[in-house]
Computed example of a mutant assay.
Amino acid sequence: MAILVIVFLLLLDIISKQWALRYLAVEGDITVIKGFFNLAYLENRGAAFGILQNKQIFLIIITSIIILGMLYYVFILKPKSKLLNWSLYLIIAGAVGNLIDRSFLGFVVDFLEFHYKSYYFPTFNLADTFVVIGTGLLIIYVLKGE
Rank of each mutant, 00 (worst) to 15 (best):
L24R: 00
A20P: 02
S64I: 03
L42W: 10
E27C: 01
I51T: 13
L52G: 04
W19Q: 06
K55W: 01
A20H: 03
K55A: 10
E27V: 09
N54E: 11
I67A: 06
Y73A: 01
Y41R: 01
V74L: 15
L52A: 08
F36R: 13
F49E: 11
S64L: 10
L77A: 09
N54K: 08
E43L: 03
L39W: 10
A25Y: 11
M70R: 00
W19A: 06
L42R: 05
E27G: 01
F37Y: 11
I62S: 04
Y41C: 00
A47D: 11
I62C: 09
Y41K: 03
N44Q: 10
A48I: 06
D29R: 14
D29N: 14
K55E: 12
F36P: 08
I65R: 00
R22N: 15
Y72S: 13
E27I: 07
S64G: 15
I66L: 13
V74Q: 15
V32W: 02
I66S: 11
K78R: 12
Y23C: 09
T63F: 01
I60Y: 00
F37S: 11
A20M: 04
L68C: 13
L21G: 10
S64D: 12
Q53C: 06
M70Q: 04
E43R: 14
L21P: 00
Y23F: 14
G35R: 07
A47G: 14
G46L: 05
R45Y: 13
N44L: 12
D29W: 05
